Simulated scan of single mutants.
Amino acid sequence: MKRRPPFDLATLGPILAERADADGRELIIRDISGDVHIWLTDETAAEHPAVVVPPDGAHRLRLDLASRFIRRLLGHPVGLLPPKLRLTDLQRRHYMHLLHAADLYEEGGEPRDVASHVLRSEQAALPAIEFKDTAARKRADRLIKEAVAMVSREYLKILRGG
Rank of each mutant, 00 (worst) to 15 (best):
K2D: 01
K2Y: 06
K2V: 05
R3F: 07
P5F: 13
P6G: 04
F7Y: 11
L9M: 10
P14K: 04
L16W: 01
A17Y: 10
A17T: 08
E18H: 10
A20I: 09
A22W: 11
L27K: 11
I28H: 12
D31S: 10
I32N: 07
I32D: 05
G34Q: 07
H37T: 14
W39C: 09
W39T: 12
W39P: 00
E43C: 01
T44K: 14
A45E: 14
P49G: 00
P49F: 00
V51D: 09
V52K: 00
V53A: 00
D56F: 01
D56Y: 01
G57F: 09
A58D: 13
R60F: 15
L61E: 12
L63Q: 11
A66R: 02
F69G: 00
R71M: 08
R72C: 00
L73E: 13
L74P: 00
G75N: 05
G79L: 07
G79A: 07
L80T: 08
L81Q: 07
L81W: 06
P83I: 10
D89W: 11
Q91T: 12
H97W: 03
L98M: 12
L98E: 01
L99E: 00
D103L: 01
L104A: 04
E107V: 01
G108Y: 05
E110R: 13
V118Y: 01
L119D: 01
I129K: 09
F131C: 14
T134G: 02
R137A: 14
D141H: 06
R142E: 15
R142W: 10
K145G: 05
E146L: 08
A147E: 06
M150C: 03
M150E: 12
V151L: 06
S152T: 14
S152F: 01
Y155G: 00
L159S: 13
L159P: 00
